[in-house]
Design a protein around this nucleic acid. Structure first.
Lengths: 220, 220
DNA sequence: AATACATAATTGGTCTATCCAATTATCCAA
DNA sequence: TTGGATAATTGGATAGACCAATTATGTATT
């Protein structure tokens, strides 16, 4: 028998949830201050802050040091219909995943070429340099993630992250894992050079070549 | 200008993440105790607990009162858990969503053109015909969904579905978000002030800013 | 009366110290 | 060797204090 004693801070989260439901705490407005809420609920500031930290990490509240906390949205909107789509996606075929990924990254190229900063290019170059020096090509993901970040579109970036994760899951399921990581590294270099020239066409072609090879390696 | 000072507990999370990456903290094993880690990092127990609470809410660690904390899985420095990606996506800007959507659909075109069947073309034609007859153009989604289905790639199809849903949610969210309403009010004030100063340039800039924000809010 | 600026109060961030309860380790006796 | 009482450890929670950023207040200047 395992009785799960609910910690105080979890009860506090429930309390806040109720108050949102009852429209006592209104979206867009300030929540009561730490001190007043703590007194009202008869808990310590620390416990209350435990609850706030969790809500903060879920982007439900925003904390402004010195300026109170703001309720951004209701808690229950976290979970919803999207779960179905996720289930569908988790049952995807590897080929579809790769095809989608290629489409995303090819399309992303134009955005990256126009928006990437010199600093970001430098960072990516450093990243590749480190991989070369340490002879560690195990994490080609970092390169793709860096590019995704440089396109300055959080939706695209997260779509690519999602795709990455799905590929990983599907691959793990199928026990496919090969080590052709250094080849990917060469291809990364080639792509970065094209981007440095701000050459959309060349960079897109580099991506296409990269994906042809990655497809064979099943290594993204 | 918005410089986001990173709170201590966020740095602690990064530290823990690094130690997981370096395999110093191993999955399935206990983490250092609160007191020892706090001393090691030179932070208070409370700050450390802030970090642990967040990791706990993400199911990365399990806390056993009196029995230490266990590392359940890696934070996955590369890709966060799908839930986190969803949370991120739900906080997307409308412009990013639309840009990503355009990218998806543009890229999808080639696939559709090569894979769509005559029957599918006929169905979509019928769909448009019905909309025309019934003079109901409220559901343009069906057209896009039909195309997505015709590309014969379930990943792409579900990405587009996800994008659609996100657009809907973000729109709804912003509509009821008084925070943004008050933000619009602030922008009105700013514009009026510029006009009061008879400052043409400043007022024009205020208008531009206002419209950029309104586009993101989809509130006109 | 309106504005600007210095000042005070508020609020979250963080630390220290303390006590409690559950768990875990220890040790002695049967 | 085994059981169980005891001690030590560990997380849960609180109280009080101080700092820095923000916000509110009030006063002086124009």
């Amino acid at each position: 028998m395992k009785i799960q004693h609910q910690r105080l801070y979890e009860q506090v989260i429930s309390y806040i949830q109720e108050n949102i439901d009852k429209n006592i705490f209104k979206i867009g407005e300030k929540l009561p201050t730490e001190r007043s809420l703590a007194e009202q609920l008869n808990v310590s500031r620390g416990t209350l802050r435990d609850a706030f930290r969790v809500l903060e990490s879920k982007k439900i509240i925003e904390t402004r040091p010195g300026g109170g906390r703001i309720l951004l949205k209701a808690i229950d909107s976290i979970i919803s219909v999207e779960d179905d789509i996720l289930v569908e996606l988790k049952n995807s075929k590897m080929l579809d995943l790769i095809e989608a990924r290629e489409l995303l990254e090819v399309g992303m190229c134009a955005l990256v070429c126009t928006r990437i900063t010199d600093e970001e290019i430098q960072e990516i170059e450093d990243l590749l340099q480190r991989q070369k020096e340490e002879n560690d090509f195990s994490s080609s993901s970092y390169f793709h993630l860096a590019l995704a970040a440089a396109c300055d579109n959080h939706v695209l970036e997260n779509f690519i992250k999602l795709n990455m994760q799905l590929i990983k899951e599907v691959r793990d399921q199928n026990f496919i894992n090969k080590n052709h990581q250094s080849q990917a590294f060469e291809e990364h270099l080639e792509l970065l050079n094209a981007i440095k020239e701000r050459d959309i066409l060349k960079s897109e072609q580099a991506v296409r070549r990269h994906f042809i090879n990655m497809r064979e390696r099943l290594q993204f």
